[in-house]
Computed example of a mutant assay.
Amino acid sequence: MKTSLWFKQIQTIVPILVGTAIYAFGLLYFIIPNHLMEGGVTGITVLLNYAFEISPSISTLVLNIPLFLVGFKILGARQSIYTGIGIAALTLFLWLFETLIDRGWIIPFQTEHDYILASLYAGVTLGAGLGIVFRFGGTTGGSDIIARILNRKFGFSMGQIILTLDVIIIGLSLIYIELEQILYTLVAVFIAARVIDFIQEGAYAAKAFTIISDHAPEIADRITVEMERGVTLIPAIGVYSKRAKHMAYCVVSRHEIRRLTGIAKSVDPRAFIIINDVNDVHGEGFREE
């Protein structure tokens, strides 16, 4: 039992370490060499590097320690443990990549003309790193801790808090960075947000069918036999007709959409079909845990 628990913990911690490593690499390889920016507390570390040449690994640790302690007291140990791991891992990997860059073992990507390429790659690497960390329940500290505390205490939306902090920090960066670099930063932030969503929601896209019909059981039987997909029948009552009926609910892959629609319409041409996007599916016939 203990072995199984430890194995599950390792399955969570290792991806968080991988994610923070990717994030730290993107920050030092693409963001800082091209004088781009980043939001949140990480943005403050970037500004301190630009203004005073303070090591990002040092400023990340110094800024996050008090935030972590406050968060630990207010949010509790359970919500803080993976945050602490994320902060420690980010600090470690920032220091490691700084050392490799200083020794010339890694040459950062620096450009004077094609900043769009730098911002695109920065967005992909930062988004991939954070997406992996978030998907496994971790954070890199900073704004996320502030957002959780304000959300717990005052009920503010975490998204709104993080966005407000990002706007303030990126706005302050105009003191040290040209407006052109800020605009390229917005490209990187947009790409990072899309990559984070892609990783968190899952790369596998499917479709969920809700079929409302007087012949729903027959439709369900044909889907089960002909497509070998599981179907759930949900009892329902039509408000207008006051008649009892069933809804058939089924999730299929994208290439099966036309086939399932054809089965439903062949049984009941008047069937009411609702199709929704499904970004992640776990279970038999799809991705197994």
Rank of each mutant, 00 (worst) to 15 (best):
I13P: 01
A77D: 10
L165M: 15
A271H: 11
R148D: 14
E178R: 15
V14W: 04
I87Q: 02
F198C: 13
G137M: 08
Q110V: 10
D277S: 15
T139S: 02
D114R: 08
S59G: 00
E178V: 08
F136L: 00
F154D: 09
I177Y: 10
G141D: 08
I275W: 12
A216G: 10
I237E: 11
G159E: 05
L63S: 09
I237V: 10
I116M: 15
I85V: 15
V189S: 13
G155H: 00
R194W: 02
K245F: 13
Q79I: 04
G39N: 03
V189A: 15
L48M: 14
L63D: 08
I44K: 14
I211K: 01
I191Q: 11
I191P: 04
G142D: 10
I32G: 03
S173I: 07
F68M: 12
F97P: 03
G127L: 11
I219K: 06
V231E: 03
H113L: 12
D277C: 11
H246W: 10
G141T: 06
M37V: 12
K2E: 01
A122Q: 06
A244I: 02
D214S: 11
Y50K: 09
L36S: 11
A236K: 04
V225P: 01
V167H: 05
R78I: 02
D280W: 03
L94A: 00
A220K: 00
K2P: 01
I161Q: 13
I31W: 05
E201F: 11
I257R: 14
F93E: 01
A248M: 03
P56M: 00
Y23H: 10
L165H: 13
I196K: 04
A203F: 10
P217K: 05
M227F: 05
H215E: 13
I237K: 09
R135I: 02
A89G: 08
C250S: 01
V252I: 11
T185W: 04
I211Q: 05
P66N: 07
L17W: 02
L36C: 04
E218D: 15
L260K: 08
A205L: 15
S57K: 07
I177K: 12
I116N: 13
M247G: 02
D280E: 15
F97N: 02
E180M: 10
